[in-house]
Design a protein around this nucleic acid. Structure first.
Lengths: 201, 201, 201, 201
DNA sequence: CATGAATGAGGATTCATTCAT
DNA sequence: AATGAATGAATCCTCATTCAT
């Protein structure tokens, strides 16, 4: 059992490394522009060995996208059920969204920009997870409208999507320019989302 | 000369069609995922004939991106020099930005998502145009701050970029879902940008 | 039109050469043992150029098999409708069968030995043609039984199939050993089929 | 020694299973179309473990062919030395030949169709065994001619080879269609070989 | 005995590009 | 202005084989 467990661990470790390598390469070159050789190089193994961990290049893309979405969504699920003011929760959601661009390597970027190259059958799960995320964010806005902390005129669906668009834009910027500060960007995104650009009062 | 002019006109027409075809194909499949055969099919000519209009596939991408940016920027230049309130101008800028997603076929999308696959030398002009656009938008915000119509605390650079991110997000949505109404989306984007989500007053 | 016709002829010529090259290589090395490089070499073109004439290696196999069966069957159709004694027709059928091994390069051998590697969808037409051939041969035997020139006890289906097996065996031998004489082998096959091995009387 | 013997027995059992598995897979997919993974799957072991029983894939093919030929030939040797009429012996030879297609799994088919993919050095022994088989069969015909039970005009070499071709054809049919009855097919083959198709007398 | 992991060479296929016509 | 034919390099993927454990 020790052997089996150790083996299994070894495989899982390498599998994780493969996902990370694929994420990095896909983020830089795009799915079609990346080669399996690139990914293997990034991992330090032979090209053929990659197929020990992925069934195909497309399967690799799917795994990268799922990897990105899963933890991103799970943090949102946790956040949604915890107590706190809506504006506070929104701030945390933004921070979490931006943070996943840095902590998950480039998987989030890959998900946003490359997922459409997946065959429909491979995208189903992704769609489910993505919808769920949008839903949770929309519910946050709805709750804010209901408890009076947000504008009653708000189109919550539009707001949620706009916030996702905004975070994705800055998330990519965070990847491109490492000097940018996540907390700073997050704070500004929250401010923009809440107060807009008009003078106060 | 008449012949040459006629020829040239015919050539220019076909050239424009080639750019449009390339834009459409690149938007759907990405630069690396698209083949010159795809573009030729879209135009209804033979693969080899494409090289009469483009020096290379990469040159095609460059032309598509330039095509997108040029007119997009020129409308912004005009807008910037015209009289009117800042908020009014912002609204027009947003409308113009979103509109280019529909009127320029998919060239804008291609510019946003695929331009990084161009070699650096090919991207210089694009960078110049893009910077100029961001600058103009930023100046709009600055002017608003100066004349008191926008919040004096505003980070204009951040705001301009956020607005670009927001418009690009919705621009892609406009392409993906043709039922969405440009004017409606534009109005909402302006509202969000100006007032945020908090209750008025 | 002249150009178009000439071009079309050029293509058809090369296409035929490609089929012959594929037949030769598949006969020698088997479908899976042969490489597209082998076929290209046999034709004297580049490996990639082969795909101008075949959609895939499997399509090449299909074309080879069809090429073999079509003419083989058509000669049988002609033969069946012509006048003459049954034994005379049987002799001609045998000669025709054996001859196709030499005149059609190795396509017949490929059909017999490699056709099962084709996907089912690709084999349908082949099955139809093959069945038709067996049918025609069987009808020859039936006619012989009916007109009294063959043994009334004969199982025509078994006889027709056995004759095919016999001819295929010797057809392959003809390919392997070019010193063998087609007419001689054909005559002996006919004799065996008609008289067996027992002493006359 | 006991251990070693036990080990050896276990090894021999597995070795036999490996040959049977290889025969089955080679028969279905051909030598080049089959993978070592296929064979391992058929045996229920890991791909790498196969190399405990075979030095290489080609060695596996050799063993399968030898396995098929050895017993097939030995039965023929026995048959040749036993008393009985020629026609009776021929009948038994045919039955034995056909039977080996069913009892030796698919090894006979593999021998007939795939042995040419073996390197020459590996085929020597097979050639010897095959020649010996043909020789024995030819001698059977010769003896028949000599003792007057067969047609004195008979080309015994041709007859022996034709019978082999006939039996191999029906042997493969027996594999493909398990509803066919060996004894029935054997009887018909004998009848055809002896009497041909002409009416008696 | 057996396996999991890795290799690396080979193979089918694609595709941007060229060019004679 | 356009095309058909060809190229050849690149790329994804497979697979026989090895080997430490």
């Amino acid at each position: 059992m020790t052997t089996s467990r150790a083996t299994s661990t070894r495989y899982q470790q390498q599998h994780q490394r493969a996902i990370a390598a694929a994420a990095s390469v896909f983020a830089k070159k795009g799915f079609h522009g990346a080669t399996t050789q690139d990914i293997a190089n990034e991992m330090g193994i032979q090209q053929g060995s990659l197929y020990y961990y992925f069934d195909s290049k497309e399967a690799a893309l799917e795994e990268v996208c799922l990897f990105a979405l899963r933890d991103y969504l799970s943090r949102m699920e946790v956040l949604a059920t915890q107590p706190g003011s809506i504006t506070n929760k929104l701030g945390k959601a933004i921070q979490s969204h931006l943070a996943s661009y840095r902590t998950h390597h480039e998987a989030m970027k890959v998900h946003n920009e490359q997922r459409l190259y997946l065959a429909d059958t491979r995208r189903e799960q992704l769609k489910t997870l993505g919808s769920r995320y949008r839903e949770l964010l929309e519910q946050l806005f709805s709750a804010g409208v209901k408890d009076g902390s947000l504008n009653p005129q708000l189109d919550c669906r539009f707001s949620a999507r706009s916030l996702i668009g905004l975070c994705n834009y800055w998330g990519v910027m965070l990847l491109r320019d490492t000097r940018l500060d996540i907390e700073d960007i997050g704070a500004r995104c929250l401010e923009l989302t809440l107060q807009g650009s008009l003078p106060p009062g």
